[in-house]
Nucleic acid binder design. Structure first.
Lengths: 342, 342
DNA sequence: TCCGATTATTAAAACGTTATAAATTACCCC
DNA sequence: GGGGTAATTTATAACGTTTTAATAATCGGA
């Protein structure tokens, strides 16, 4: 074994090639090698070729720490991951999309927890202050999201999952929740349903407004009765949601249609039907937003609308890369469309 | 608002504080400040206090890049996240546990995709070679996992989710799948079931062996009939699993009990019952491993056994920290116990 | 043949930290 | 007060990059 008098980290010192390795091997200086690898046109084409070949031969990979120290760029993208989401598989699908795009770009993804009930600004501040990332992705965006405000002020690249109501444009990827809600209501109406119910996410999230608007306008246009569950949100403990939905079923005018914004809520609604002796398809119908294929295996089969979270992750990562390249925010928007199964 | 004709000071104040900032402010040298902050006993206690106060005042946070360049330690923990898991919420729960423990330690978590069907060694090699992390966590461990072999050879800190069959000890956290399978079978037997069925994960994973052993030994001890589905694994496309289970139900001797290792498989089994006109609780029973509360809202309610993935993530992160501190691997093992709902 | 202008290369500094070795100061005892 | 030792502090040299400014090489053109 090679002795290491330096006392510096054990697994590093196994002859990792550096610029100097290539420099001494090719006879050029470290500076030239660095610029050659950056494809600087000031460096003769022949030299660039020689250096590139040597780098290839040695399996040279630039040291991130050194580059980061020198340039201030971290090669890191941070994901603020909300503790709650409307789908069980949200994190997995989303992260899969992001890492798919980032694979091979040299960026790595760090995950930072984001508690929508807590201080959402704290992790952002830490990242900005300590220069922990070059770009930021986050979910569960609020209408006047403080993170968006702060990041825009700091001119720090980010893409939000969900829009805001700020006037200045910023990059976002969003699911068309208004269209989803509208389609869901219309579908229920087409099935003859006249009294539909909805459980919304917390009021502060922008997508809650979109859902509400789509739901209300379609219900009013159809002239049917509707209600939005009170005292609970999509993120409430499921027993609480179950209690409210079951109570409503036992009340005077139980709904005959449910628009469910998440998978779990849809299961709760189904359970409420079963537990109150109601028959799906007879006494009530359900349209649910889904992000996974689990409903294929749930009986009775309900109508679903697919939200492609993997594609969402991909779109956000791609957009962030473009933003970090300096592309202006004005056109960096992408709406993910609902895919109904009906 | 205020112009800066001098070109000197003002914006410097808003710059990130470094050791030099504190050094000039306190009158000590950079070296002293560095050592004082490291609580070096060679530095006078009074000096340490002074320096600590100044650091506090400036909101000093050491620059990760500089420290990393100098020490070779990255302050990063990488998570190799398998593309498939037996639970929809696996990623979320697991990641939540990990980030909970790592919050405040100064370590950040990067997520790297790991495709169990592809080259599982490639991401590990990249991390080792390019010194991208100080420690590694991964899931879906194989009996003779090449990653474990490589990491042990390189003496690189890691914790695997799942055991291996290597003789040398390495840190692991595992769920007692053997106990789960055994309990599940015994429970079905106690309910009077005499012909039980199981879908296993891929053969190479260690936990597959544990499941098989628990299942087989309990079934044989009880003297009942059993079968393990062939041609499919837990990770097969759900339509494939559904096809096999449904075909079995239509065959000569359909099972009257199912041990389901994942939530989706349990749903498939339930659907297979429903689709073949069988009645849960009458024609067959199910015991399923679960990681989320969704089954509380699925009707009929089946018997479940809880695997606490958040606790698993916590345990793995804690263990990795201890391992990185130099603790020997010998006792770094933790078995997560099944929590039956029955 | 030599000069000015490109073109190609490189020396040196810097990013912020830590570790080594050396320098300084404080302290104690005679 | 001096000599020696212990207690503190600090200068300096890295770590591997990139970048600025400067040097060296090449090339026409007069």
């Amino acid at each position: 074994m090679i002795d290491d008098p330096s006392g510096i980290a054990p697994h590093v010192q196994s002859e990792r090639p550096t610029l100097r390795t290539i420099a001494t091997a090719t006879g050029f200086s470290v500076a030239t090698v660095s610029r050659a690898l950056a494809d600087d046109p000031q460096i003769a084409a022949k030299t660039r070729a020689t250096v590139a070949a040597a780098a290839q031969r040695f399996g040279y990979v630039p040291d991130r720490a050194a580059r980061r120290l020198r340039t201030g760029r971290t090669q890191v993208i941070s994901l603020l991951l909300a503790t709650e989401h409307e789908f069980l598989g949200f994190t997995h699908e989303f992260l899969t999309g992001i890492t798919q795009v980032l694979a091979g770009t040299g960026y790595s993804v760090t995950v930072v927890p984001d508690s929508p009930d807590g201080d959402r600004l704290a992790p952002v501040r830490t990242i900005l202050r300590n220069n922990l990332a070059d770009g930021l992705l986050f979910t569960r965006t609020e209408a006047f999201d403080p993170r968006v405000r702060l990041l825009m002020e700091a001119d720090f690249p980010f893409v939000s999952h969900g829009r805001t109501e700020f006037t200045a444009p910023h990059p976002w990827v969003d699911f068309d929740n208004e269209a989803f809600a509208r389609n869901a209501v219309e579908h229920l109406v087409a099935k003859g349903r006249r009294r539909i119910s909805l459980v919304l996410p917390g009021d502060k999230f922008t997508f809650t407004q979109h859902l509400r608007y789509g739901f209300l306008s379609a219900a009013r246009a159809a002239g049917i009765a509707y209600d939005i569950a009170e005292g609970i949100t999509l993120d409430s403990p499921t027993p609480d949601i179950a209690a409210v939905l079951t109570a409503a079923r036992r009340g005077p005018n139980p709904p005959d249609g449910y628009v469910c914004v998440g998978e779990v809520t849809a299961l709760v609604a189904l359970a409420a039907l079963a537990d109150t002796g109601a028959l799906y398809g007879v006494d009530a119908d359900i349209v649910a937003k889904r992000a996974s294929p689990i409903f294929d295996n749930i009986r009775p089969q309900i109508d679903t609308v697919f939200e492609d979270l993997r594609e969402t992750g991909r779109a956000m990562a791609e957009m962030l890369l473009r933003r970090m390249e300096g592309e202006p925010a004005d056109d960096l928007h992408r709406m993910i469309l609902p895919v109904p199964s009906f």
